[in-house]
Nucleic acid binder design. Structure first.
Lengths: 130, 130
DNA sequence: CAGTATCCTCAGCGATACTG
DNA sequence: CAGTATCGCTGAGGATACTG
């Protein structure tokens, strides 16, 4: 019934941590969570797949903060085992264009940033690529 | 000779701290510094005008980080008293569209964020504005 | 499954004072 | 003018273990 793709462990490149990017959306992981939700609701454990290095406590904090800001809703179903779904609100969706602009910047200019950083740090051979 | 407007102390609203916005560009003040530089080079003390609450140490750190990432250049003139100018690089200018997207989001949706936050926090009367 | 509960660390940020 | 030098704090983030 659910034809959406499962979230991949490779969805975000671990070698390319968001901490290097000059943009941060919400808190450290907020932007990535929003991207995970853009195709429809997801469960807590689903979100852990593409974000394996985020401790459950931190993921909970991230989700609560996004909920507080009105970007996502949390729906708990009274079942056993329990099921909880997180889903973007219309307000949350308004973030997507700006997030896209940030991602587009990164796609176009991330290498230049890294090169500049190497040059500044005096990494050998960094001068070659002006 | 310099026809550019001086930077105003009111350039950034102190009642609307960037810490509330879901976007952060570079470090806490990086995005604002970039905006200050978009019309041309500025001196250290010029930048302090619109950012009076940023300690000089912090402004220096911000500028060094932006320089390291290749977003700005620092030019010191051997004069007395000393003069130093900071200026956006072409790479730094590539950030402007994405920053604009973030600002546009804020202009359109900031009130809704604040309202959602009040509702979540149970602020009296926040329910009225759905 | 979907989280809590505890404990901990550290870097980002700030205040104040001083200087070539 | 354009910064350094110190000191200090807080809170975001993380590691690990446990639970209804």
């Amino acid at each position: 019934m659910d034809e959406r793709e499962p979230l991949s462990p490779d969805m975000f490149d671990p070698a390319c941590p968001s901490s290097v990017a000059p943009f941060r959306i919400a808190d450290k992981w907020g932007g990535l969570v929003i991207l995970c939700l853009q195709d429809g609701p997801r469960r807590f454990s689903e979100l852990r797949i593409p974000l394996p290095r985020v401790a459950p406590k931190v993921l909970t904090e991230t989700l609560r903060a996004l909920e507080r800001d009105g970007f996502i809703t949390r729906t708990a179903y009274a079942e056993n085992p329990p099921r909880v779904e997180y889903q973007l609100t219309p307000l949350g969706r308004t973030l997507l264009p700006a997030i896209s602009a940030c991602r587009e910047w990164a796609a176009d200019n991330f290498d230049a940033l890294l090169a500049a950083r190497d040059r500044y740090d005096g990494v050998p051979g960094a001068e070659a690529a002006a």
